[in-house]
Write a protein that binds this DNA or RNA. Structure first.
Lengths: 336, 336
DNA sequence: ATGAAAGCGCTAACAG
DNA sequence: CTGTTAGCGCTTTCAT
């Protein structure tokens, strides 16, 4: 790696402005309590020299880093197929940027990477962590707790029952699912199937619970487990069709799954929504608007989730509510 | 943000092991030239105290950060619709992780963010930068050059002609495009249309060039500009169909565009591949395998691109080749 | 309101 | 091989 040209230090600026380092430091950090004349002189010197504070030196004394780790622990498949991840990142990035914080991205490939993440967190490089996509049996939270660093989880962690001090942001998965199923019911459908997500994630489990809230004693054969991918959605739909040819409605755990289901339905000559009405979850425009027919779905504001997670973390977790649940809304298009 | 418990310092470890700070430092950093007995004593002290080096203090003296900035300058639309971004990130992350480097993600929302990025880069927080998705008129490279920090670009920068010392990694877009069109020709198609990407990006321009290489004097009306999104691919296909109803082949600049084209084709009652053969570009499995019919497309190894970019940067740019072009391969499925 | 001085925790000569 | 000694560039009392 080529060396960077030596950058001017506080010292240099002080010399040029004819003041002490302390004064320059004050000006650079807001400049209260410094005479206006001096402030200007310093600012000019900063300008002329192109001075930029050395973050390492600053962190060394302040013990702050103005950096937040974002940890994504997710099997490849989903992260790549689904714009979900990118959207959350964007929200987080916006909020962090607005507060002059940097985003350090930690992608994990599996258990092997956990030690590394733990070490990094314990290393005190960042002021906090934002963690996604935890599965029920994930050891990551344990590590993170041990690192003793402020953390906000994206999505309700499966193990949080009882654990205190766990802060998370989630969508109203259960309520959204209820809305979806009720909408189907309102359309006169009675044989409503559900293709779930991976049930070791709370978002998927909660949506299933919502489905069951409304379909109190539904035929258990109407529920098929999926994993949030289109491929599996298609396969699940085929299984459902074979098992319950009389079904007239489907609530898919996310839009990708719904897209897969739509394919299977078309393949089997079922018209949507005439024969079978379909509702998705997420409202990812590039997916929901592109399906044939366009998808009726439950919208969650993913970017806002990201933004909120960052905001909570930056504000300080001491007075933060444990869980924040964001509302969802049903978006009607053509599939139901 | 809650404070982290005060962590033990080198000093503390030294005291406990009964050696000097220098010795501890040596052990922590590889430990060559230290008697085995001492090494073990120090390691045990480290263990017992749970010592982790303070990165800020270390950077302050070494002037290295073991961190790389990844800058993504891309209008929302594409980053979110396309798994492209996530894949490259994964490749980069893997390589960086393997070399104990951190990934600092900088997402820009537009011109307004450029100053911030420039400041960050100039701030000397990172040892290098990886930059994506530059458009022809993008001022970002300028800023980056000024920051004087080692940089590798993802995709051939549009302005690199003449500029020396620009290092980039790209796919063989032009060659891949030629393969795609030749394949269509080999199928006996003669009226082959092309839906381009945004032509201010070299990847799109190069693919168009590749198309023209083969279709030397093609009817110019067979070319329609797109922007790498499905929606636009659909619209472009409609326009093409209206203008040249006799077309029998389409080369779409990427898979998403091809997916959109497929929709338009279906809507117009054209059978694929019988009436119109379609070839895409990228080979994004979640897209290419899910279209109806499955997409014949030009594969590029996106994750490898990311990995290679990181590798070049970490190895040091001084002896790096200016441009590295990765090969592409045609993947036959059902659409052509 | 401003300056002097003391470190933050670490590495890197330099001695020994 | 190991210890001593200087800082790296910045913030922050404490005087003035």
């Amino acid at each position: 790696m080529t060396d960077t040209a030596p950058r001017p230090t506080l010292e240099a600026v002080a010399a040029r402005a004819g003041v002490s380092r302390a004064t320059v430091s004050r000006v650079v950090n807001g400049g209260d309590g410094v005479r206006q004349a001096l402030v200007e002189r310093v600012q000019q010197a900063v300008e002329e020299l192109g001075y930029v504070p050395n973050q390492a030196a600053r962190s060394l004394v302040t013990k702050r880093h103005d950096a937040v780790a974002v940890i994504v622990a997710e099997p490849e498949s989903r992260v790549f197929a689904d714009p979900f991840f990118a959207r959350q990142l964007r929200g987080i990035s916006k909020e962090l940027t607005a507060h002059d914080n940097q985003l350090v991205l930690l992608l994990t490939e599996g258990r092997g990477d956990h030690a590394r993440v733990g070490r990094y967190l314990a290393g005190g490089h960042v002021d906090g962590a934002l963690v996604f996509s935890l599965h029920l049996d994930d050891p990551l939270p344990e590590l993170i707790q041990r690192a003793g660093i402020p953390t906000v989880f994206g999505g309700r962690p499966g193990w949080s029952g009882g654990r205190d001090g766990v802060v998370y942001v989630d969508s109203d998965n259960r309520g959204g699912a209820r809305d979806a199923v009720r909408h189907l019911l309102g359309l006169g459908r009675t044989r409503i199937a559900h293709i779930t997500g991976p049930l070791d994630q709370t978002s998927a489990a909660d949506r299933l619970d919502g489905y069951r809230d409304v379909m109190v004693d539904a035929d258990p054969r109407l529920v098929e487990e999926g994993d949030f991918t289109a491929r599996t959605g298609e396969r699940a739909m085929r299984a459902l069709l074979a098992r319950c040819p009389d079904l007239d409605g489907v609530f898919a755990a996310n839009d990708l799954t719904a897209a897969g289901a739509l394919r299977a339905l078309r393949e089997h000559g079922r018209r949507v929504p005439d024969d079978v009405a379909v509702v998705g979850f997420d409202d990812m425009p590039p997916i929901a608007e592109q399906t044939e027919p366009a998808l009726t779905t439950v919208r969650q504001d993913i970017e806002e989730m990201g933004r909120l997670m960052a905001r909570l973390l930056l504000r300080g977790l001491d007075h933060a509510p444990s869980g924040v649940i964001l509302p969802t809304t049903l978006v009607r298009r053509d599939s139901a």
